[in-house]
């Protein structure tokens, strides 16, 4: 899936990836890839600044730990993040319903 197709939906996707519990940046990207069966596979390095932006917006919170001798930053949803995720879901379902209605099962015109 092209990156531009994700415009406007990246925040919701990242929040959804964190819904089941705390993850570090690489795991967020992997979770996104796995849940979409590889259809959404962002360049990993571009996920981190998006997570930082969500953290600045208080939608997620990050904490440092040391794993295998490396410093690791792990993120989890805040209460505001869960609310935002619900909003993203509702908005997406409304949008998807409308687009499906417009583009979906339309009959080909009959040829006589």
């Amino acid at each position: 899936m092209r990156a531009e197709a994700l415009k406007g939906h990246l925040d919701g996707l990242l929040l959804a990836a964190l819904e089941d519990g705390p993850l570090h940046g690489y795991a967020v990207k992997e979770a996104l890839r796995e849940t979409t069966e590889g259809r959404i596979d962002l360049p990993t390095g571009t996920v981190y600044p998006a997570l930082h932006r969500l953290e600045r917006a208080d939608l997620i919170t990050g904490s440092w730990s040391v794993v295998g001798g490396r410093r690791r930053r792990t993120y989890e949803l805040t209460a505001a993040g869960r609310t935002a995720l619900s909003g993203e879901r509702a908005g997406w379902q409304e949008f998807a319903t409308a687009v499906t209605a417009a583009l979906g099962a339309r009959q080909w015109p009959a040829t006589t």
Binding site: H24, G25, Y26, K29, T44, G45, Y48, P49, H52, V67, R70, R71, R72, R73
Partner: peptide
């Protein structure tokens, strides 16, 4: 940011 990228 680089430390985080290094981990990933």
């Amino acid at each position: 940011a680089v430390q985080e990228l290094a981990d990933g």
